[in-house]
Design a protein around this nucleic acid. Structure first.
Length: 816
RNA sequence: GCGAGUGUGCCGGAGUGGUCAAACGGGGUAGACUCAAAAUCUACUGGCUUAUGCCUGCGAAGGUUCGAACCCUUUCACUCGCACCA
């Protein structure tokens, strides 16, 4: 047998596509646009792994399908090159991050090109290039102008391994998202923040409009943004008003104490002289608690010495400092109702504080009653249903001007300061006279200096020449901001830049972005649900408000690809040595086989366990297809093939549109299996079959296409249409009489076996079947008297309304 | 605890009311080819000593229906995400 040299064949076609520039696109097309995007990679020296390829192949199949469907398809690629891992990896191998990254990118590109992807390489982006991050800085300055970028002293999450600050989203179970063995420390630092909270409500409500996003991702984002409606109530403490947020104003008569967060910035305004020592001891103890213990921490607190006055009934209740109250949510202070809140209950038990019931309901096995009920012990509100009471009490408080309705969000502002080198420099100059002065727009970009020393602390602090500059305000001595931006800043808007990636005078041409965006289909890992995918929604809303965009959401459809594990089902990792490199697989089996295998073993969203044996099956199929021309003569189609081809066109059109590639691969196998059985097949049908396979296996189909005498590219040809009539004809070929006889016989048998005597049978069929049924024949065969009605027949005898069950090819049956 | 989702044959997985012992693939068994192996091809691959027949069967238990893997109720198991947000 002649072994096909897939590698040569594949390279040949890749070269031809490249020379013809068929995947390079522009806005001057009469076709409708389609923007499909895969999340860009973080280039590392180890190169592309099979999970990357899976991601790209999923997107590529869609892109190829859409091209053939007649869309003007934008399918770009770039590199999320800035960030800590690259810096750390570079230090480890004794290289400079810039050199390390550039090398990695070249390697990545080479491997991506080998996959035969439809990228428009003329638009490639590298976020580590100052021509890109210049616009990060520009956006930052715009945010500063609008008051959305600001500096504040705050407690921040600090990872000792990264030697830097982390955003809230980057802290997972008290650990760094990059170092699962490293506990995050809390440090107090002056930091730059982006006011994402300004958009909290729009980010939350906008989720409802994201119809083509996975439910799970939407739920995660909602949970993360955490919108809750409640009431803010003023409690008076030592003559001053302290607001408290609650979602349960109906329980206000049950308040027996108030808890202020131990981290509250104004805590000591509440602490009396007598209690000062005790509170300080408590705070010290809290600091010594490690992050691990925090997860199972018992609710603890200490009396501050102060009392709060419950505004609704004037009751005096003690104020505690507690470890379980979140300082920067609401006002950092809560009213405690131990009878109807589990946390308050535990706290009250521990410190022997009074528990007062204000809602009817039993407290089971020593737990607070949190269910619904009627109010008690609540003066004029007694007897009210507690849901109703929420409104009435809030209205009462509003009238008295001691409370108001309030919406609170869990979403915090985004801390973007990083004390590391390999990130976008924050375009700020600190002057002793003028304070923090923005770098003038004309001086952008602030480039990263190459000369720095790595090792201790922030490398940017080691280049004095770069650091020392004149103040743009007064011209005096000043110093650059030595912090860089979080890497997620770079990825928050890169999909916009693709539309005009070479523009060096403005961030992008509004018209070009208006043409291509929003992204029609976005593919990437689910791990970005609460980081990248919230940040980019925020950026889009901000840029829209600047007047640069006319849409609200970055992408209309989102798809998360599954994980590819090793044969044992374990996650691939370098340390385990179980990483499958696509380059190796491609060399061995060819690209088309690899692509076919990747999508045929599992649903794209579920992933699968890699198997070297499994790929043999795909190889067998690809070989057979590539030999199909020799095996099958060109001629006429059999009716069977005609039908199957039509059906396959119809189904695959749907499958490709909905990431159901696995099903597509199955039907393609069936179709080609049938083709191999044929003595002859029409050229047109064979060509159409090749078209159907082309998105998954573009190389061999292109080869066969040209062997059939075509001079153009199959990749650019038009998607085949199917003939609905031919599908219907096939259905009608089935002999209804035979079918109905068997069916009714079976039912009668079943019913009679239960002891019921059947004398007469009624069939209800869809109208066009009425004439097709031979009443005499059927009646004779089943041995019963028979009546046949059309379901549309108004006068039909149908005591149990069985006619509603009838569908084409399936009657409703009533027995007497 | 809250949220999202999943449970089908040896395995991966189709199938959402009748044509289902259940697509397609992987694996396995037997046979053909071959000196032999690989590749390729053919048959079988829930049980019943073999039948266009019966039984069992789609996590478990009930229910609706002439009929359920598919609809309803309850339940169990697993996976993932969030977790003191008042």
């Amino acid at each position: 047998m002649v072994e096909i040299n897939f590698n040569t064949l594949e390279q040949k076609w890749q070269k031809k596509w490249e020379v013809a520039k068929i995947f390079e696109v522009n806005e001057n097309s009469k076709k409708p646009k389609y923007y499909t995007l895969e999340m860009f990679p973080y280039p590392s020296a180890s190169g592309l792994h099979i999970g990357h390829s899976f991601n790209y192949v999923l997107g590529d199949i869609l892109a190829r399908f859409k091209i053939m469907q007649g869309f003007n398809v934008l399918h770009p690629m770039g590199y999320d090159a800035l960030g800590l891992p690259a810096e750390n990896a570079a230090i480890k191998v004794g290289s400079h991050p810039e050199d390390y990254t550039n090398k990695s990118i070249i390697n990545f590109m080479k491997q991506q090109k080998a996959l035969g992807l439809t990228y428009d390489w003329s638009r490639v982006i590298n976020t580590a290039d100052s021509s890109y991050y210049k616009w990060d800085q520009w956006i930052f300055l715009k945010m500063l102008e609008k008051g959305l970028a600001y500096q504040k002293e705050s407690s921040v999450n600090w990872c000792p391994k990264c030697n830097s600050v982390l955003a809230n989203e980057q802290v997972q179970e008290g650990k760094c998202w990059r170092h699962e063995d490293t506990s995050v420390e809390i440090k107090h630092l002056k930091q730059w923040f982006l006011k994402i909270s300004n958009y909290a409500d729009e980010l939350y409500e906008g989720i409802n409009k994201l119809d083509n996003w996975p439910e799970k991702t939407k739920a995660m984002q909602k949970n993360w943004i955490g919108k809750s409606h409640g009431t803010e109530i003023d409690f008076e403490i030592n003559g001053k008003k302290w607001p408290v947020f609650t979602t349960r104003p109906d329980t206000i008569f049950g308040v027996t104490f108030v808890v202020v967060s131990a981290q509250h910035s104004k805590l000591f305004e509440l602490v009396t002289k007598e209690q000062k020592k005790e509170v300080e001891t408590f705070l010290k103890k809290l600091k010594s608690v490690s992050e691990k213990e925090l997860e199972t921490l018992e609710k603890e607190g200490v009396f501050t010495g102060s009392y709060a006055i419950n505004p609704i009934n004037g009751e005096k209740v003690p104020v505690y400092a507690g470890n379980f109250v979140v300082a920067d949510y609401g006002s950092g202070m809560v009213m405690a109702v131990p009878a109807h809140d589990q946390r308050d209950f535990e706290f009250a038990k521990k410190y022997k504080i009074k528990i007062k019931h204000v809602i009817e309901g039993k407290m089971d096995d020593g737990r607070a009653y949190v269910g619904p009920g009627k109010l008690i012990n609540s003066l004029e509100f007694n007897g009210l249903d507690n849901q109703k009471a929420k409104e009435e009490i809030t209205n009462f408080l509003i009238k008295k001007k001691i409370g108001r309705k309030k919406v609170n969000f869990k979403l915090r502002d985004w801390g973007i300061s990083r004390q590391r080198y390999w990130g976008t420099p924050i375009p700020i100059i600190h002057c002793s006279k003028c304070g923090a002065v923005p770098v003038p727009e004309k001086d952008l970009p602030v480039k990263l200096p190459k000369e720095v020393k790595f090792g201790k602390g922030n490398p940017l602090e080691t280049n004095e020449k770069w650091l020392n500059v004149k103040c743009p305000g007064c011209g005096g001595k000043a110093r650059r901001e030595a912090e860089t931006m979080d890497t997620f800043v770079n990825s928050s808007w890169y999909f916009l830049r693709y539309c005009d990636s070479k523009n060096d005078s403005i961030i992008f041409d509004k018209k070009k972005v208006a043409y291509w965006c929003p992204v029609d289909s976005y593919i990437g890992g689910a791990e970005h649900a609460c980081m990248h995918l919230i940040y980019s929604r925020f950026y889009v809303k901000f840029l829209r408000d600047l007047g640069l965009l006319k849409f609200d959401e970055p992408c209309l459809r989102l798809f998360h690809q599954g994980m590819i594990n090793d044969e044992k089902g374990e996650k691939m990792s370098k340390s385990k040595g179980n990483v499958i490199e696509p380059i190796e697989t491609i060399k061995k089996y060819g690209i088309d086989t690899t692509r076919f295998f990747l999508i045929s073993v599992a649903s794209p969203d579920k992933g699968f366990n890699w198997s070297d044996e499994g790929i043999q099956g795909s190889l067998r199929f690809i070989r057979k297809v590539s030999e199909s021309l020799e095996k099958t003569k060109l001629g006429k189609d059999s009716p069977e093939l005609e039908f199957k081809l039509n059906l396959t066109i119809k189904n695959l059109t749907n499958y490709y549109d909905n990431f159901e590639y696995r099903k597509a691969s199955i039907e393609l196998r069936e179709l080609f299996e049938l083709i191999f059985e044929q003595k002859e097949i029409s050229k047109k049908s064979l060509e159409n079959s090749l078209k159907l396979l082309s998105p998954i296996c573009p190389h061999i189909t292109e080869e066969l296409w040209s062997k059939l005498g075509n001079k153009d590219f199959l990749s650019m040809s038009s998607w085949p249409a199917f003939d609905e009539i031919k599908l219907k004809v096939k259905k009608q070929e089935v002999d209804l009489n035979e079918k109905y006889i068997n069916l009714v016989k079976e039912i009668i048998l079943r019913v009679e076996s239960k002891g019921v005597k059947v004398t007469k049978t009624y069939l209800y069929v869809v109208p066009f079947e009425v004439t097709k049924i031979n009443k005499l024949k059927v009646s004779k065969e089943i041995g019963k008297e028979l009546e046949i009605f059309s379901v549309k027949d108004e006068k039909k005898y149908d005591p149990e309304n069985k006619s509603k069950k009838a569908i084409p090819g399936m009657p409703g049956v009533y027995l007497e």
